[in-house]
Design a protein around this nucleic acid. Sequence first.
DNA 1: AGTGAGGCCTGAAAGC
DNA 2: TGCTTTCAGGCCTCAC
Length: 270
Amino acid sequence: MPELPEVETTIRGLKSIVGSKIINIKINTSKLRYFIPKSILLINNVRITKIKRKGKFIIFYLQNKHSIVFHLGMSGRLRLYKKIEFKHNKHDHFLLKTNNGKILIFNDPRRFGFIDYGLHKIIDSRKYLISLGIDALSTTLSGPYLFFKISKSIVPIKQILLNQTIIAGIGNIYASEILFNAKISPLKRGKDLKLYQCNMICKSTRKILKKAINSGGSTLRDFVATDGTLGNFQNNFKVYDREGKKVSGKVVKKIIQYGRSTYFCPFIQK
DNA sequence: AGTGAGGCCTGAAAGC
DNA sequence: TGCTTTCAGGCCTCAC
């Protein structure tokens, strides 16, 4: 589910707890993708100073010099309830109460997501964060950067876009949509791309992701914002999940690359 | 070092 | 209808 636009939508929905204090934490399932550090239960009356996104990671910065990290995996979501409206659901693995009457829930049926906790400097040095490439929405993402990074790679560009150590935030859906927008074949190897094509990819990345954020993300199976509202961007997909349908009068094709589905239009994308 | 397959999980949808 | 199979938006580990 959650790629950059869905994570960004989630973050924006968490504004109301920035500045509030965490007064209680409960773990229902300690083993997600990894075990949740037990020390997180020691948090008591600690203020959340800011909430940020890095690639697909959500980071809570706390006043006690610690951070909480959420990764939503494939099926994870963060929901924010008013205390009086909260009722427990299946797969609610983690619960966080704030002093302004909110309850934050981490719900994840497949448990591919994870939650981490530790001192800022420990978290900042986690491999999953330090290995991240330039954020897909960063103004420093540029054609020359991408060109330099992939100029020797035999990996097809679709797979390169999924590599979080090169560009952080793109997932399987938006990779297809971005390449369609850039009119570049997902099969094209990194080393065969010209600089101008890398420029196009970066431009399309910004365009598609921003548009998706403005639509509240995409809801395929189960993405919802923190307040439960659905995303809309799936209605704007040009190729994703549209095998056999037409885009600009040409048929969309589905192929499997590295075990993941890729959608594209061979007539438009070269 | 770079590449590509396999595996972690559950649930919805498709197939029989 | 109900059981079985397939597939899913992520990413790490391991063999080559």
